[in-house]
């Protein structure tokens, strides 16, 4: 009796075993054949900028980006006849991928005559699934030179020597793509201003940036950014920079439309020297429009 039950058990195991082999389709077999190479998340953000500030994204080697950033705003209490907006500032920049990880960029802004150069290095890639890095990390360093005084506003730096007009921003950009739609970025920032016109202003500033994007379609996403300054300037009243907008990607062209409270387009300018809060009043409301054109100077051979 005992033997018989044992025999039956074995028989069932045997049948089950046999059937499980038989049920295995060729596709299941192929699934097991995939080599275990790490798969990395791509496009945590579609563009190298979330809105006003940099995202963790870099362009690949041999890719040149031509960036035109524009800000439009009205002058308050002025019976304006201007077309669309009273004031306009633009930053034209070139950004080139030296390697898949390293990008070099230069730009010039019309407002305040700011010239800036930056290096951006992708240190970590977020890996899909378990194992590997759960985040993406990019290091950012820029230097900016302010060539013009900003009348009628008070200038917070000295204009005597070349070095007086410099400011340096270092950022650690940390981001994670939580779902195919949703990505979040945290950007601890350190800004050093080479000179100060007022003794009460610190030379070194700390700030934290928060950025997020939500994809609402294959090509369109909503992106928002906010920079909190830990030790702001004391001589003038400043506010934290904020932006909310839409990113629209179409092939080689990336369009970003945003509402913001800052006119600045270089890190130290918009993080530290935003003189107004975010609201819809003239002078405070700024419409931003970035157009980024991507040129592949070197193409892969297939």
């Amino acid at each position: 009796m005992k033997n018989k039950t044992r025999f039956l058990t074995y028989l069932f195991i045997y049948l089950g075993f046999g059937m499980s082999i038989y049920a295995q389709s060729l596709l299941d077999k192929l699934d097991k054949e995939y080599p275990e190479t790490p798969q990395y998340e791509i496009a945590t953000f579609k563009s190298t900028r979330i809105g006003i500030g940099h995202s963790i994204e870099n362009r690949k080697k041999g890719v040149l980006q031509v960036v035109a950033m524009n800000r439009y705003w009205n002058i308050p209490n002025r019976p304006s006849q201007s077309f669309v907006a009273d004031k306009w500032s633009a930053r034209i920049a070139l950004e080139y991928g030296i390697s898949d990880r390293l990008t070099f960029g230069v730009g010039g802004t019309t407002l305040d005559g700011i010239f800036d150069g930056f290096l951006k290095y992708r240190l970590l890639h977020q890996q899909k699934g378990s194992g590997g890095s759960p985040i993406s990390l990019t290091l950012f360093q820029n230097a900016s030179y302010k060539s013009k005084r900003n009348r009628p506003f008070v200038d917070v730096n000295v204009f005597d020597d070349f070095t007086d007009k410099m400011a340096y921003t270092s950022q650690i950009l940390i981001a994670r793509k939580f779902t195919p739609q949703f990505s979040l970025q945290l950007s601890p920032t350190f800004i050093h201003r080479a000179s100060s016109a007022f003794d009460e202003d610190p030379h070194n500033h700390f700030a934290v940036g928060f950025g997020a994007r939500y994809k609402i379609g294959g090509h369109i996403s909503i992106a928002s950014e906010y920079y909190y300054v830990v030790n702001p300037l004391k001589s003038i009243e400043t506010y934290d920079a904020f932006s909310l907008g839409v990113n629209w990607e179409m092939s080689d062209l990336m369009l970003q439309f945003m509402m913001t409270n800052t006119r600045g387009m270089v890190e130290d300018a918009f993080i530290l020297q935003t003189p107004n809060n975010f609201n819809l009043n003239d002078g405070n409301f700024i419409f931003g429009f970035n157009a980024t054109f991507v040129l592949h100077l070197s193409q892969k051979k297939l």
């Binding site: 389709s25 798969q39 080697k61 990607e249 193409q299 892969k300």
Partner: peptide
């Protein structure tokens, strides 16, 4: 016959095309 491939293993001439 069975065939299986990863979509992100496709290589494009332009790197941005791969992403898109």
């Amino acid at each position: 016959i069975a065939v299986s491939m990863l979509m992100n293993a496709f290589v494009f001439k332009k790197s941005l095309m791969h992403e898109h």
